[in-house]
Amino acid sequence: MAETIDAEKVRHIGKLARIELSDREVEMFSRQLGSILEYFDKLQELDTSGVQPMAHPTDIRNIFGDDVPHESLSTDEALANAPQRDGDFFKVPKVIGEGR
């Protein structure tokens, strides 16, 4: 049986994603996410003993680039889509301390 996605869990996920959710949205997402998890329940019914866990969705391996610099964007190009800039910097609301 999958975990249920109750309103509290949806609010928590919203908080982690930095999005504000109305009560109506919480109720809606709780229902929608719940039905997705129900589908996973269905998949869980399959017998997977003897099947190797998949660590990556593709069979492609070892795609590398050489360590040779290419041209970067100009600072103006890089900052062009930023809502605000402070000289050569991206300007963002004040953050305090290390939030990691």
């Binding site: 890089a78 402070d86 000289g87 050569d88 910097f89 991206f90 300007k91 963002v92 609301p93 004040k94 953050v95």
Partner: peptide, 8 residues
């Protein structure tokens, strides 16, 4: 004091 500046 009013905002944070980011260098990437």
């Amino acid at each position: 004091p009013s905002h944070t500046a980011v260098d990437l």
